[in-house]
Structure formats: C-alpha cells, structure tokens
C-alpha cells in the first residue's frame, strides 16, 4: 500500500524545470511563449510530436488538454516527466496553453502505417464504438481526445496502459473498451486511428 504522502504529493524534478526554463531559474514565472517553447522541445514546435511515444497535441480539443494538464498538476494523473512543467500552472495558463494547441493543425507523424493493420483496426473499432466518443473523424471533442493523426507508438503505449493498469486514472471508459484485446488488436487500433 502506498503511503498517503507519496500518493498525494507526486515527486518533483526541479532540475528539469530549470533546464527548460533558463530565464525562469531566477524564480520568475515563465511567460506563455516560454512555456510553449518548452512544450515544443518534446511535443513538436507545431504541436506535432517528432519523438517516440510523445503524444502530438496539435488539434486536440481544448477541454481535453486543459483537463489533462490539471489532472497532472493535481497528481490524479501523475506523469513524472511532466510534473515540473505543470506543478505551478494556474488555471488561466492551462486554458491559454490548451487554446494554443487546439488551434494548431494536426499532421501525420511519418511513422510507417500498415494499411492491412489499419483495416483490421477499423473493424475492431466498429465493435468498440470508438466513433461514439472520438467522433467518426476521430478528431475528438470536448473532454475526449483526438486520436486521428496521433503517433502510432504513443497510441499503442497508451492503449496498453488502459488495458493493463488496474488503476488507469480517473476515467474508466477506455479500460472497459479495451479489456480483453490482444497486443495485436491494440496495434491494429493504433494504425487505424493514426491513419485517419
């Protein structure tokens, strides 16, 4: 059993924050532009991630981004790599960042998509009713993320977490949706979504 302290107060990598916010090292709050620059180092300057297993943010629904930043800040969805960036985020900065990325144009990642896998993923997706929440375009809406044009490796990574972690976060819909699917099924779903 985790101690309450550890669960309630996620660890902080202060060093990393200083690394990304050199101007902020002198205890100044980074500007929005500085924050966006720091985000872009991993998530891509245009919000389309060039990096393995790092999600693209371009064209994600504003509320989805805002929710995730807040859940990371609160420690409900602890992501260690993100902790230094979110720990002091105020609501208005959260909303400004979310608005910025929601307005950017999503682009395919350039990973090799397998058409046969994508076709199989489309069939699985029908039975799992992905389009019910993520919309037929898979562009997402409100609190539901865009999965169309998301990175394949990130989608696989994320789907596996939903399937395998008994504590997949505060929302349970995805865990129910992917329960019982094989690794191959999840890969097919990822290729299907990324190609949309």
């Amino acid at each position: 059993m985790a101690s309450a302290r550890r669960l309630l107060r996620p660890p902080v990598l202060g060093l990393a924050a200083a690394f990304f916010f050199p101007a902020a090292a002198a205890a100044q709050t980074p500007t929005l532009a500085e924050r966006i620059e720091a985000c872009g180092a991993c998530h891509g300057v245009d919000g389309n991630s060039p990096m393995e297993k790092i999600p693209s943010l371009a064209g994600q629904p504003e509320l989805f981004i805002a929710n995730q930043l807040i859940l990371m800040r609160e420690g409900v969805r602890p992501v260690e790599a993100m902790t230094p960036f979110v720990k002091d985020l105020k609501d208005d900065t959260v909303v400004a960042l979310a608005r910025h990325y929601a307005a950017l144009q999503p682009k395919p990642s350039g990973e090799a998509a397998d058409p046969a896998l994508a076709a199989r993923g489309a069939e699985i997706g029908k039975t799992k009713r992905c389009d019910s929440c993520h919309l037929p375009t898979l562009a997402g809406s409100a609190q539901i993320p865009r999965i169309g044009k998301q990175r394949i490796d990130y989608l696989i990574h994320s789907l596996k977490q939903f399937r395998d972690s008994p504590h997949p976060g505060a929302d349970t819909i995805m865990s129910g949706a992917v329960a019982g699917l094989s690794d191959a099924d999840l890969a097919a779903l990822a290729h299907y979504a990324a190609a949309r």
Binding site: P78, S165, H167, G169
Partner: peptide, 15 residues
Amino acid sequence: LRRSGFAVAGTFALL
C-alpha cells in the same frame, strides 16, 4: 507502478 502508470518515456536522459 501506479505512479508511472501514465509516464511518458522521455528521450531526454534527464527526464
């Protein structure tokens, strides 16, 4: 396990 449940595998060694 719980905490790393959503961890992103960063490419920066630091992270």
